[in-house]
Nucleic acid binder design. Structure first.
Lengths: 203, 203
DNA sequence: CCTACCGATCGGTAGG
DNA sequence: CCTACCGATCGGTAGG
C-alpha cells in the first residue's frame, strides 16, 4: 500500500491535486492554496501532495497551466477550424464571454483573478500569465488583421486599443457577477465588444 | 518612552501602518500584508502594529477604506462641482483612467486588484468592495441619466451595459501596464469609453 | 505516498 | 507601544 505508486497512479494523484488547487484558488486566490490544506482536502500527507511538484511555486505554476489549457479547450479549440477573419473573431468572443461567465470553478474565472492579482508581482506566475495573455493577443490581432484585409473592418482600424477593449470587457464579467449579481454580464460584454468593433448591436 | 502614546501620536502611527499596508498590498496583494512584515518594515513590535486594529481583518478593511478615500479625492472630488450630465461624466472618466494609470502605489491600482481578488470570497472586505463599487455605479448612472435627459445621449440608451463597459475598461489599465508595458492603456481606455458612449474619437 | 520532523512565521494576547 | 509568549500553520526535507 505504501511506497512509490505506479506511474499511472502518480498521474491520477497529480491531476487530483491540481484540480483541488484550482478549486481553492478560484474562491480564495492562488496564495490560499497551501500544501497543508490540499493534504487535508484530499486525505493525503503533505509530503504526498508536494512530492510531485518540488515546490509550491511549481504547483502554482502547473495550476495556472491547467487553467490555461481549459481556456484554450473551451474558447479557442471550438473556433480554430474557421477561417481567420471577423466571423471567427466574433465566434471566439462569444466563446470567451461564455467561459468568463461559467469557467467551471465555484469562485469565478481563475485566469482573470490571477491576472489582476499577479500583474504587479515578480516571479514565474507573473511571467507565465504575461506570456499566455500575449499569445492570446496575437490570436486576436491575427483575426482582426484578416477582417481588415477582407473589408469587414475599416482600413484605418487602430488594433491595439481594440484588443485592449476586448480583453477588458471579457475580464469584467467575473466581478460583475460575483459582486453585483449581474446575470447578464456575459451579454453586456459581448455587446460592448460589438460596439468597439463598430458592428450593429445584433446579428 | 514606552507606554501609551498621546492620541495624536497614535493617529500618526495608525496612518503610517495603513500607508505601509497599502504599499505592500499594491505589490503583492492584500493577503501578503502580515502583521509581522509591517512591524519589520516600520521598526515596530507586532503588538504595536495590531494594537489599534483589534484584528487583521480590521486592518485590511481600513486599508481598503484608505484607498477608497484616495479614489474619491482624486476622481470624484475634482468633478463633483460640475452639473450632472455628459460633460461631468467625461471629466470623471478622464480622472478615473488617470487614477488607474497612476494610483500612487508601486504595484498598480490596489482597488482594482482587490476587486478582482476578493470578488469570489466572503467576508467584510468582499462586502465593502461590493458596496463601494455599487455607489460608484450609482454616480455614473446619475450622470448618464442626466445626459439622456439633456439630449446628449440617445433616449434609448441601455444604461447597465454602458456602466459595465466603463468600469471594465477602467479596470483593464493595470494589467495592461504591468503585464505588457502598455504605456497608452489610459488613452485606450478613455477612447473605448467614448466609443461605448457613441461619441466621436476626439473632442 | 507515508511518518516524523525542521525552523520560520502566522494572528493574537497578557501584562506592563 | 514594548517584551514575552501562545498554539497553529507555513513550506519543505529525511528516510523509508
Amino acid at each position: 500500500m505504501a511506497g512509490r505508486a505506479s506511474a499511472q497512479a502518480a498521474l491520477e494523484t497529480r491531476r487530483s491535486v491540481l484540480s483541488a488547487a484550482a478549486e481553492i484558488a478560484s474562491m480564495e486566490g492562488l496564495d490560499s492554496v497551501t500544501i497543508g490544506r490540499l493534504a487535508d482536502l484530499l486525505g493525503m500527507s503533505k509530503a504526498g501532495v508536494i512530492g510531485q511538484f518540488r515546490s509550491k511555486e511549481r504547483l502554482q505554476l502547473e495550476t495556472v497551466e491547467l487553467v490555461m489549457d481549459a481556456f484554450r479547450a473551451r474558447v479557442w479549440q471550438p473556433v480554430r477550424h474557421l477561417d481567420p477573419g471577423l466571423p471567427r473573431l466574433l465566434a471566439a468572443c462569444a466563446a470567451w464571454v461564455r467561459y468568463g461567465a461559467d469557467p467551471g470553478y465555484s469562485g469565478g474565472c481563475l485566469l482573470t483573478q490571477v491576472t489582476y492579482d499577479y500583474d504587479g508581482r515578480s516571479g514565474a506566475v507573473h511571467d507565465r500569465i504575461a506570456e499566455g495573455r500575449a499569445r492570446w493577443r496575437d490570436t486576436l490581432r491575427h483575426d482582426i488583421d484578416a477582417a481588415i484585409a477582407a473589408g469587414d473592418l475599416p482600413p484605418g482600424t487602430d488594433v491595439p486599443p481594440l484588443v485592449y477593449g476586448l480583453e477588458s470587457l471579457a475580464a469584467g464579467i467575473t466581478p460583475a457577477r460575483l459582486l453585483h449579481g449581474d446575470g447578464r454580464a456575459e451579454e453586456w460584454a459581448l455587446r460592448g465588444m460589438r460596439t468597439l468593433l463598430g458592428l450593429a448591436p445584433e446579428g
